[in-house]
Design a binder for these strands. Structure first.
Lengths: 224, 224
DNA sequence: TTCTAACAGATTGTTAACAATTTGTGGTAT
DNA sequence: ATACCACAAATTGTTAACAATCTGTTAGAA
């Protein structure tokens, strides 16, 4: 692995953001993080620099690092970027998907449904995001996959900020996308994917946001 | 400004990469950088972490940081990602372009032509990239603009590695794209943009690459 | 000559101490 | 009661020293 110590911090925080445990605006105090990860502040500071470069953390001089708070304009841009990127990802997926890939997708769908029916919302959120990342993996373009990874994390922040109560990918939409991919019906798959993304976007509603005062350590401890 | 010291280092190195002064594989020694920027190594290390997150620097444990060396597969992915992103950027540009924007584009084209005819290759490279970034600015999607910024820098590295001698955006192609935008002809503009990007990609040819032994300080000193 | 091993120098990695800034608290005056 | 100021605590920012690792050179043996 690359620089294990720092990468662990980065991954841990990214996971917490993706899972909507860490919410927009939460302060990421250096001391708290270096305590939690049993490392020194230099590691934490570099990890925070990395996270800031990924645009999921904002750095305020002399005030510290905070989980990014996307503006409504940024939210709009993120969704448009997702449509642009996932259209190409979807096309790649349709063209590259092997039977084994279709199996992986269907297995994933089943897990999603189980989590949803079992009322396991945190897991449903994670798997819902995982579906989109799985498509990107099948599409076999690492650059687009990486950008989608970033965008889905920012989407998590946006939904946490502006989403109505139960905002979540409808998994019957996921299922229909898989059907279209399995049939090799590119037009249909891309149409469904685009509509799906627009549905997610429609589920958000801009409103005033409150300052965040969550306690960091308990949030991070909840992670896998 | 955010964290001036570090951001200066990051911007300086990004500029050098975009301008093809810093080539793939060049070692970025911490001491050399902290000497050049008159700062301490902690700043340099955080700047390098940021650059690594942007995928233009690779970090090898205990060996140091190097300008990234994109593989042929990565190059292919970068170009496909550019087509995906710039298609949406182009559409936004056609729809949002004001007469003032068209003026800016035409002014830019003139500067490009001057640089090219005057044999000023470094400036031609910078302006050629600038054209694409200007389109992104007119498109008014900050997320896509940022990704394009990253992708154009990676394109610079790719062309530096695998480009045939005079690989450069043909500026008559740029001019025709501007014409289509000025006419509001979206289909034509997007078609031309896509073809333009494919032409750039066709100008590269994968071959073995040599280890790089450039001297960092003189490269950075050449920057604006 | 060629290969190996040991050493010295240079570079990266880690840590702790100190400085500067902000934040919260308590007291005082209006 | 409220506004304001001063002080203390906490947090971020900066720096230097030290440890670990790698690189290149030199000497010696096959």
């Amino acid at each position: 692995m690359d620089r294990p110590q720092e990468d662990i911090i980065v991954e841990h925080i990214l996971d917490a953001i993706a899972d909507q445990r860490l919410r927009a605006g939460t302060k990421l105090a250096e001391q708290a993080l270096s305590d939690f990860f049993s490392c020194n502040r230099a590691h934490v500071r570099r990890a925070l620099a990395t996270l800031a470069a990924h645009r999921v953390v904002e750095h305020k001089p002399n005030r510290g690092a905070f989980v990014a708070t996307p503006t409504p304009e940024e939210a709009r841009d993120v969704f448009q970027a997702r449509r642009a990127i996932e259209t190409t990802i979807g096309r790649n997926a349709v063209r590259n998907a092997t039977p084994a890939d279709i199996d992986r997708l269907r297995t994933h769908l089943a897990e999603e449904q189980t989590a949803r029916q079992g009322g396991n919302r945190p897991r449903a959120i994670r798997l819902s995001r995982g579906f989109h990342l799985l498509l990107a993996q099948i599409g076999r373009n690492a650059v687009l996959a990486h950008y989608l990874d970033e965008l889905t994390m920012r989407t998590s922040l946006i939904i946490g900020l502006y989403g109505s109560g139960g905002t979540l990918c409808a998994d019957d939409e996921h299922a229909r996308i898989v059907d279209a991919i399995a049939e090799g019906n590119e037009t249909e798959a891309l149409e469904l994917l685009d509509r799906h993304l627009r549905h997610i976007e429609q589920g958000i509603e801009f409103r005033e946001t409150r300052p965040q005062t969550d306690i960091l350590s308990s949030i991070l401890a909840a992670g896998g």
